[in-house]
Each structure stands twice: as C-alpha cells, then as structure tokens.
Design a protein around this nucleic acid. Structure first.
Lengths: 356, 356
DNA sequence: CTGAAAGCGCTTACAG
DNA sequence: CTGAAAGCGCTTACAG
C-alpha cells in the first residue's frame, strides 16, 4: 500500500509538498526484506549493520529512488542537515560572497541552506529574523558584519547550534559562540603605509558603518599613521555603497590635504573616485584611492583599483566548518581568523604631488 | 537598512522569549481549556471556531510564546510556507537582485526561503539541485536566466508547486509551468536606435551566454538595426562577468567599425570599456558603450554608464506572487512580463566621429 | 462549532 | 546485529 500521488485532477485541497515519488523507508524495507528500522540505520550510517544487509538495503534505495523526508527526520529528532544564514543584505559584495562560501560548503555536506534577512537592526526586526531562522532550520550561521548582525548574534537562543562570521572579534564574546573573521589589520596597515611611502602627508579613511572605531582595519590604518608620527584625520563615511562613497568623496574633494584615501570597501572607493573626478581631481595624480575587498569588478575600473584582497568565500566556508564542529558536539570550537588579506597594487594610487 | 534613530535600546533581557522551549499545541490547548485540534484550527485560521474560544486560544498562544513547528506541519501535510530558490549564481547582480525580491516578498508572507545552487548545467548537477530543492521545501522558484536554470525548470517534477523567472519566454513552454520575465525588447531597440541616432553606422552586441539568439533584447537589437537598414554584425561574448567583457572588448577594439557597442549586462560593459581604454580608444569619443541592468555601481563609473534599467527585484516579487497563486490552487496562473525597462542615458555613449 | 482517531515518515530508545 | 514500540508536533478526515 504505497502512497501514490493522484495528481490527474488536483483538487483545491491537495497536499502541498507532494513529491513525484513518495517512497518511504517502509517501502525500502519491504523491498530489501528487512525492518524499516534497519533502513533507518543504513541511511544514517551510524549503527551496526551487517555488511550484506547494508548492501541489500542500499540497492533497494537505489532501485526505488528513495530519498529521506527531511521534515520527518527533523521531527523525529535526527541530526540536522539544515542551516539558515541570518544576514542583513544579500546584494552587497562581501555578504554575497560569504553566503556563496557557506552555500558551497553546505552543498558539499548535503546541508539544506535557508536565508533569513534582517530588515533593520531594530529590536523587533532582529527578533523576527532570529525566530524565523530558528523555526525553519536546525542550525544557524549569522553574518555579523554590521549592527543588525551583531544584535542577531546576541538574540540567538543560548542552546541553539550556531556559528558566525564577524567583522570584528572584539565586542562581547558570547560564551560558547564561536566565530570566524578576517584579520585585516596587517593589510590595512600595509595599505596605509603604502600610501605614506608614496609621499602622502597623511591618509584619510572612509569607513563602512560598523568599522569606524572597532574594526581591525581601522586599527591598522591608525597604527600605520601613528608609526609614521602622523595624526589620524577623522574617519568619514556613513554607508556601504557607492552613493555613500560619493557623499564622502564630495566632502573630501574640498579638502586639499586629502590626497590619499583608504576606503572601507570597493563600492565606497568607486563613489569617492567618481566624486573626485567630478571635482576635477585626477586619480591618481591629484588623489590616491585604495579600496577594500577586491570585488571582481575592481580590476576593471578605470583607473583600476588598488585594494586589499579579502577572501570572503573562504570565510563563509570556515564558518560552515565551525558550525559542523558545533553540531558534532565535541565542546565549543575556537574562534579564529581566516585567510591572509593582501594589498593588490593597481592604478588608483600614485605618488604625492604637492600641487593639486 | 538605517543605522540611525532607534526607538529604544534592546537589552538582552528578552532573550528568554526568543526560544519557546518547545511549547506544543497541546500545551496551548491545556492553557486555553480546549482540545489541541481546536488550537490547530486557530493557528490555521481556516475552520469554524467560535469567536470567544478563538480569543482564548490566541491569548494562550501569546502567553506561552507558542510558535508552530514547521517540520511537524510539513510532515502532517499542512499548507506549505516554504520555498527554495533554484539558481545558478548568487553573486551576479541580476540573480542577486531577483533573489532579494523573492526574499522580500516571501518574508512579508512568512515563508521560509532556501536556496539551491546549480553547480553547472550538467545533467547530474541539475538533478541534484532540483532534488535538494524538492526535498527541503514545499515549493520552488527557479531563476532560469541561463541554460542550467532552464534545465532545472524542465527537470522539476510535474506536480510540484513551481514558479519561474526566465530570461526569455520563448523555448518550450512546459504545460502549467507559469513564469515571469522582463520584456526588454523595446528597451534594447531604443538603446540601439539611440546609438544609431548618434550617427554610428552600426551597433555591435556583446551578449550574455544564453541570450545570443533567443532573447528579447537580442531581438530588439536586431530589429532596430533592420529598421535602419543596417546588417547586424555577429554578436560576440562568452560569459557574464567583467573578464568576459574584457575579452570581447579586446577583440572589438581591433575593429575600427566597432564604434558603438551594446552589452548584455553592465559587468560586460565594464570589461569592454576597460579593454577599449587599454587599446587607446576613448569612451565615448572613439567608442560608445551601452550596458544592460543598471546595476547600482553603473552610475558611478567614469564615464558613468548609459544602460537599460531592469527591475530585477520586482521580477522576484512577481515570481513569488505567481507561486502563491499556484499554491492557492485556482488553476495555473498566466505567464506574464514584469515592469517596463528604460534606457538611462549617462556618459558612456556619444556622437559618432569618423576618425578613431 | 468542537473533540477523538489516525497517521504523515522518520528516529531514538528498548528488547532480544 | 536486528526487530517491535513509542513518539516527534502537527494536520486532515471523521464524528458528533
């Protein structure tokens, strides 16, 4: 009495979620001449099953095209094979690339991946996004590059399997919440020093929202300036995208001392460059600009963008690996940095010339 | 996402309410003094329940912080409130923006959204991605902008709730599979005519992989050329991204007749422009370039990009609306175009000058 | 309008 | 190593 989908004339109340074939472990069991519990053991590959019966079951699975029902699995309390990514934004390069890395790793491990987008960093929106993630998956990875993400991290139930990709490993390390991050301090320092070595008296910084004070990259910028005995100008910036960079660039364009600018990401750099262009300040002759991220397009800008390469996909993969450790249950994994960011020298930065 | 203006600080105190320690409908039933079936009726808001008992149940739900278990719901055959997006690529602008639109609409409707990425257009990868989607969700939206997506569409089980966003409404309309698309023929025609009106003898086309022959936009390009009595040059192009545009641009740069180039997307245009720049061909004085998509960065390129605006997020929202119609079960919804693409004139295209 | 039954497909115990 | 039980939390029928 195997269940079949009578789909010829689907009535209004048809079962949603109907699959083309609804083969259950009982069907497999019958075909293999074993009990359905044994089938369960085989598909979970964790109990003792005699080799010969395992083979028989596996063959039946293949022949019938059996695929376990994930809802039933989740209900009965099996191991999770699903995660949802809690994130603010899926279109900005950094976020999208982390998501891609997570998805790749999750796919390789046969995990289903969901996404739960944070509408804002407001209490309500954060709570909703967290609940949605908890309700629909067995585990979560939060991308905490911004305030909304950090708050989501804090709002996660304490006992829920979780890993995170963060911008800065600083604030409030929630106990047992492991995370990964990209330590870009050295690269930010190198980028700043690179501009200083080009003869620029100082280096300005256009920050992404969350990184103004706490980020490693801001720290690297400051450190390089301090080492050179130069006072750090006030960081500017109020957004993530090209329009925000454009705003910052317009302000900076009026400041003749702003001849070298480090930007929190490549979109910001693009906006800054555009603003400088409109103000008649040539890049790199009058102003040097360095970005952050090494987004795929940055090599094709004119001038091509000198920037810091960040391996976001690798960060995503590392977050997933960390989540798997959590799920394996062998204590809480260590938080750790991922990758080694490096300055990619291209055309947008050049030697200082006194006359703008 | 606004980073300013908060109503009140969100202390970590409400964390307790985030995770309902598995409150079930039985708990709610007990608290409300009804049977658990009645609770089920209330949370599904579809059966006849006396107003007063409904209120009692709703209050109990609120007090206990009950949230229905989605796995149990799916298992028992309730209405789906989940969808997974089958797509080739989550980082290219068009795909990411469609995904964003789907997510927005899904979020508003309290749907969980998953993603299933197509590794390639190979039979095996397509089958795997489709199975993964079918196994983990009650419904699917496929982004069929490319061959892999189209094949995934064809590989979906016939009775599975499905909607699609496609590039071209042409090929093989699978019965009862509704889709949405952006009809950009008129805009492509307008863009081509715009270049022709600028005095260019002809317009070359750098295509995205799938659109060379069948797409509306390629058709618009050809139509405008035909109307002007100009033979269409062979379309070039072999990829989606800036490097692919760069390759095409290098080839085109050697052709003095290529003074006006329409590109299948903005990344391609960026690559073409870069290649022209390196070849010493000034934009727009020697070569005019027009893109497609109006990606957020395109206004900030130097020169800023003349391009065709496409509302991908709107397309994603429309696909979700269509999926909801499918799930409502009232016959199969009509396929239809979404939005009205328009040429956005900026700096990258200019008057033809005979001497390059 | 409301309750008692049966069962979705699986997984953990528990017995052999 | 393998089978028989019990149950995950919900939803559909089915009875009143």
């Amino acid at each position: 009495m195997s269940v079949t989908g009578h789909t010829s004339a689907a009535p209004a109340g048809q079962r949603a979620g109907t699959r083309s074939k609804s083969v259950s472990i009982r069907d497999v069991a019958k075909a293999a001449g074993v009990s359905y519990q044994t089938v369960s053991r085989v598909i979970n590959s964790n109990s003792y099953v005699k080799e010969s019966t395992r083979e028989r079951v596996e063959q039946a699975i293949r022949e019938l095209g059996f695929r376990p029902n994930s809802a039933a699995r989740a209900l009965a309390g099996g191991e999770t094979r699903s995660l949802t990514v809690v994130t603010s934004n899926t279109t900005l390069y950094g976020y999208a690339a982390v998501l891609q890395g997570i998805e790749e790793a999750a796919r390789a491990a046969s995990f289903a991946v969901g996404i739960s987008v944070l509408e804002s960093d407001g209490e309500q929106d954060v709570r909703i996004a967290v609940e949605r993630a908890v309700d629909s998956s067995g585990s979560v990875i939060v991308i905490a590059f911004d305030r909304a993400g950090v708050r989501a991290l804090e709002a996660m139930p304490a006992d829920f399997p979780l890993a995170a990709a963060v911008e800065t490993p600083a604030a409030r390390p929630a106990a047992g919440r492991p995370w990964v991050w990209i330590d870009d301090e050295a690269a930010a320092r190198a980028a700043t020093r690179y501009l200083l070595d080009l003869g620029h008296p100082t280096v300005h910084y256009v920050a992404i929202p969350s990184s103004t004070d706490t980020s490693r990259r801001a720290a690297g910028w400051r450190a390089a300036l301090a080492e050179a005995g130069v006072a750090a100008p006030e960081a500017v910036g109020s957004g993530w995208d090209a329009p925000a960079g454009y705003q910052a660039g317009r302000r900076l364009a009026r400041d003749p001392r702003a001849t070298a600018i480090l930007c929190g990401n490549d979109d910001l750099a693009l906006g800054v460059i555009r603003a400088m262009h409109e103000a008649g300040r040539a890049i790199p002759d009058s102003v040097s600009v360095v970005g952050f991220d090494n987004a795929p397009q940055s090599a094709f800008y004119t001038p091509s963008l000198t920037t810091v390469h960040l391996d976001f996909a690798g960060l995503g993969r590392a977050a997933f690996a960390q989540l798997q450790e959590v799920l394996a249950g062998a204590g809480s994994p260590k938080s750790h940095p991922v990758g080694r960011p490096e300055l990619v020298v291209r055309e947008s930065a050049g030697a200082y010339s006194a006359a703008p």
